[in-house]
Structures are given as structure tokens and as C-alpha cells.
Design a protein around this nucleic acid. Structure first.
Lengths: 223, 223
DNA sequence: TAGATTGTTAATCGATTAACAATC
DNA sequence: TAGATTGTTAATCGATTAACAATC
């Protein structure tokens, strides 16, 4: 009996967070923030599911991960649920990040104030290899030469690097980010990065998304 | 016996394409194109898997969907596999698309020539509600007033709409795209779109991606 | 031939959905 | 109380991985 309990507790630690839940929770959060702005106090899992096209039972499981608890017959307190999800995602405190690449996508990312307000990261420096862009300012952030990347990463103990370069140099940039001590890479370049174990890579790949879209459209048209 | 065969053929038509395969195939494709540029003639599923961190057996299943056939002991002809995947994704001929929103993300998308060359879609017009931006040119494409969206969609029989607006107006834009006859929407706004059945929506949501990244980083740091 | 590779079938794993007791 | 909702356990579904025969 005691053996079973020990086993259970070990097992419960090993069980990892469902990947798909991590992608749904930000969606719930953004809906909840809207509700909060509208002055709504309570919301049910069923309502969230209905609005976002997710099964209510799925919503409940996802919410359970965050530790939030609802009240039968009334649902969840909106403010409380927001807090719990933010905590769970690590968006309750803002993490500094370096961005590499001052091209179109890079500019879009820096110009986008949303991340620091709602997404838990703040882009504090931009790096670029094209000397014509170095020294310019994007949204108040100075563009620095790529040669300073590794040293500044170390000095400022930055943990998140964002790659918004052409695919051809993305691997090289990733290597430098890791050399400087980054633990997580948000990769916008359409190429697979080869990284040591333990380094977190999140690919944001337009072609993967576009592939799904165009295949479905193709099927839709031909049917 | 005959009954079984009929049943099987019906079943095989019903079986739908695994979603995850549609997201991996573009990745294989981009690697294959690189190999092709390097003059490589053959590649094995195991090699593709090794480079892209996918199980070789998974690569084979994905490739099987496209109908491509390999040669035991030699692998797949690179050029042939490229062609098969492009056909499968519908990237063998280019589909015209309208983009709504001439902000940072919109500009990045238009500035990015890659789609028409490698991704099967070409952005032919940009629409914007801010009159100060209307009339400007982005990468040679004139920015048109949003008031013309529905009519032009109909007139040009456009099937793909790209939403790169703030979340606050995205639903309204989606409604107009659908009113104009669009069948597929590529949505860059961080909001869930409510659309009639049969309309294809592919969300490209930075916050979902960022959520996964920051949660994993949080776990990594605390362990 | 021997061995590398394909392609398929079976087994496992994880994610989603269904069912239902507990609760206010 | 009755009914809406939570939260959990069991069943189903789909995706991944393992095993292996077929082939050049």
C-alpha cells in the first residue's frame, strides 16, 4: 500500500504537460481578458468552449492544469482564471529577450508592443549583420552589430533569443545564442535548427501553416 | 469477398489526412530543395528524419501520402519527391490571395517574396481601412481602400484571404472575406474567428507559440 | 549475395471525447 | 430542492513508434 503511494507520486511527477494544452491556454487567456474588459465576473468552461470551438470537457482539463478551481453552478471567476493561466504560462513576470534580424519580420516583432503587455517577454535589443541597419532605431530600440551578440547575452544573462533572419544564417545565429547562454529560441526562420539537448526551440513556421491551408483548400475545391 | 472490397474502398476514401503530416511535409520540402540545390540526386527517409528530428518511419508514412515511391537501397529521387510533395500540398500552381491590413505584419508578408516562389500563393492586393495608407505602394502592390474588398473578391474570384489586422476588427474582415466568396482564411490576428461550416481557417497565432515557449522555459529554469 | 532501404502491419502512446458522480 | 456546473474516470480516437517482410 505504501509502495503504491510512492509509485503514484513518482508517476504524477513524470506525467508531462500535454503540448496541445499549452497552445490552447493562450487562446482562453485572450478571451478571458476580453471578458474582463467587458466587466464580466464569471464564466463557465462550457461558454469558453462554445466561443472558441473547443469541447467543454477539454477546457476543464486544460484549466485543471493551471490549478484554478471553479464554483459549481457559477463557473470560474474571470480575474482569478486569468491570473492562474498567466502564472502557469510564466507570463506573470516579463522575461527579457534579444532579437536577431532587423528585416521585415524583425521590425514587425519589435513594433508589436503586445508581447510585453500580454505575453511575458520584452525585446530589449536588436542585432543585425547588415552594417547599414546598425545604429538605426526601431521603436526606440537601437540596432546593434551582431558581433556584440554573444558578449551582451552573457553580460545581461539573457535567456530568450528570437531568430528573425533569413534561413541561410539561422543555424549560425542559433549557435551564437546558445554560446551566449540562451536557453530558449523562438525561431521565425523556415529551417530546422540543430541544438544541444536541453535547449528549447519553438518554431514559428509560416510554411507549415500555409501547407495545411493550401492542402485543405485544394481538397475543398476539387470536391 | 466482393463486399469486403467495396467496404475497403469506401473506408479508404473516408480516412482523412493526418493534420500533423501537413505540417511536416513543408519541412521535408524545404530540406529537399536545399539538397536539390546542392546537386544531391537521392535521399533516404532515414536521412530526412535524422536531419529534421523525425522518426524515419514517420517520414515514410508522410511520404506515402503524397504517392511518391522510393527505391530500396537507394531512397527517393530528390527532384521527384519535391514534385510529389508540391502537388500534394497544392503548391504546384500559384493561387492568388488578398491581404487585409498594411501594418507591420502585413508589410512583412507582402515584402516576403518567398510565398509565390515556394509556397503556392501570391498576394495580389492589399486592403487597409486607414486612409493615410491607402494609395501607398508596398513592394509594388498598391494599397486599396477596404471598401473595395468585397467587390474585388467577387470580381477576381479570389479564394484566399489573409488577415493581418488588429484583433478588434478581424472578425469583421473575416465576414467580408466570406461575403466576397473567399473559401480559406489565413488569420494572423490573435483572435478566434467564427465562420460558417466549410470555410477553412488556418490560425497563425504567435501567442500560442509563445505560450509553449515560456512555459517550457519556466519549467527548465525551476528544475 | 548481403545489406540497406522501402513500405506495411501491429503495438503503443497520448490526446480527445463521453459518461457520470459531486457540489453549490 | 432542481438544475447547472465542476471535476474526474473510463472509452475512444488518432498519431507515433516498433517490428518485420519485401525488394533491389
Amino acid at each position: 500500500m505504501i509502495g503504491m503511494c510512492v509509485l503514484e507520486s513518482i508517476v504524477s511527477e513524470i506525467v508531462s504537460i500535454p503540448k496541445m494544452a499549452l497552445r490552447r491556454l493562450p487562446k482562453y487567456l485572450s478571451y478571458l481578458r476580453r471578458l474582463n474588459n467587458d466587466g464580466k465576473e464569471f464564466v463557465s468552461a462550457s461558454k469558453i468552449g462554445e466561443v472558441l470551438d473547443v469541447q467543454h470537457t477539454q477546457v476543464r482539463k486544460d484549466i485543471a492544469l493551471t490549478g484554478a478551481q471553479g464554483v459549481p453552478k457559477r463557473g470560474h471567476k474571470v480575474k482569478e482564471l486569468i491570473k492562474k493561466i498567466e502564472e502557469f504560462l510564466g507570463w506573470d513576470n516579463t522575461e527579457d529577450a534579444f532579437l536577431v534580424g532587423a528585416g521585415n519580420i524583425g521590425k514587425a516583432l519589435v513594433g508589436y508592443s503586445g508581447f510585453s503587455e500580454k505575453g511575458g517577454i520584452r525585446i530589449v535589443s536588436v542585432f543585425e549583420s547588415d552594417n547599414r541597419k546598425v545604429g538605426q532605431s526601431i521603436n526606440g530600440i537601437k540596432v546593434l552589430p551582431i558581433s556584440k551578440l554573444v558578449n551582451l547575452l552573457k553580460r545581461m544573462k539573457i535567456k530568450i533569443g528570437i531568430i528573425a533572419t533569413p534561413a541561410s544564417v539561422a543555424q549560425e545565429v542559433a549557435d551564437q545564442l546558445i554560446a551566449g547562454g540562451a536557453l530558449a529560441i523562438w525561431n521565425f526562420a523556415p529551417i530546422h535548427l540543430d541544438v544541444p539537448e536541453g535547449i528549447i526551440v519553438e518554431n514559428f513556421d509560416m510554411y507549415s501553416s500555409l501547407g495545411a491551408l493550401s492542402r485543405k483548400l485544394k481538397e475543398r475545391i476539387s470536391s
